[in-house]
Write a protein that binds this DNA or RNA. Structure first.
Lengths: 197, 197
DNA sequence: ACCTGAACACCGTTCAAGT
DNA sequence: ACCTGAACACCGTTCAAGT
């Protein structure tokens, strides 16, 4: 009398979601198409119906990671403070998921994902009558710095979870270095704004 | 009568040099241990006598790429100008070799290679009586920004050498964006120095 | 529309054994 | 000291065929 389980088919989103899950559990090097297929109860070739290739799949995962970026509200923050806030938020998003900085970095470089912080920063610039081009430069500096910084941070995380790493001086003193660097960038931004005004 | 060619053995440096050559010719994804072995006329397993693993080999290649960093002379340049000069030099080094930014980025994150610009920047700071810690922050910002920027730049290079890329508006307007960003960083550095003095 | 089965052309790494 | 030969345990991707 039991209605036979219809063999549930997967959507594109199901696949990306499972990929993110595997990323957190096993890390980027072990996020393979074959592992992902197995986790979904499917043949590896089935994934190629949903995505043209692995890079496209990884781009979808990148988008998931960066999705929380859009519910930040900067209100009337001036450009330099907005840059700081966006950089900090981006770091938080990346730190939520294992190897996220490396993954997003490559999706971004390949142009498969839109640079985060850019739209919000352009918006903030316009509200305060600041040149678009300056906002573009700021976005580039912030995005690259944050990705590089967190990349480094996360590699160290997995390195000493692996037991390597001779010196591990308590937890990370990274937090302070990060905000200090973001302040430096904000200061530079302020000077540039003054020069143009 | 001919003296038989002694089967020339390879040094560690020979291997790294050939790897750099293959990197330029075929790019990072095609720089495999097997290809490298073939190019050297040797079995893949032979490489593991010279290097414990592929990452170590790639670190040696990274060092070659960054080697020209050390023949820059900053003389009496103040810290912000030194940062600009070092960033620009680092970009030049990276642009000399295909996919260099991606490669160096990962060697650096793994801690297998020493951060370029850092020693020279610390030196410049000391000569001018600037706090070490500020030089550290500056080094981090510059290194991460340059790597991220050039990574992006190089990915676009290989992307449109591959024929992809819908819009290719003449050559790259990257040069201008880069110097502008470095100036922004230098300005921030100057402000920070002022605050501490 | 969504997936299977089977194959193709590769990978990095290990290890006993040779010279 | 430096390398061979052979194997192990994998990869991403394609494609005809199934339902």
């Amino acid at each position: 009398m039991a209605i036979p389980e219809s063999p549930r088919r997967r959507s594109r989103d199901d696949v990306a979601e499972m990929a993110l899950h595997l990323l957190d559990e096993f890390g980027l090097p072990d996020l393979t198409m074959r592992r992902l297929a197995t986790a979904l109860g499917v043949q590896p070739s089935a994934l190629y119906w949903h995505f043209p290739n692995k890079q496209a799949l990884l781009a979808a995962v990148s988008e998931q990671i960066l999705a929380p970026m859009s519910d930040i509200h900067l209100d009337e923050l001036p450009l330099p403070r907005a840059a700081c806030a966006l950089g900090a938020r981006m770091r938080e998003c990346l730190l939520e998921h294992r190897d996220a900085a490396e993954l997003v970095s490559s999706s971004l470089a390949l142009g498969l994902v839109e640079p985060p912080v850019r739209p919000a920063l352009l918006d903030a610039a316009r509200r305060h009558g600041v040149n678009d081009q300056l906002a573009e430069v700021a976005a580039e500096v912030v995005v690259h710095f944050v990705l590089g910084f967190v990349f480094h941070e996360q590699q160290r995380l997995t390195a000493d979870s692996l037991g390597l790493l001779e010196r591990s001086p308590a937890a990370s003193t990274d937090e302070a270095g990060f905000t200090e660097a973001m302040t430096l960038i904000a200061d530079g931004l302020e000077v540039s704004m003054g020069r143009r005004a």
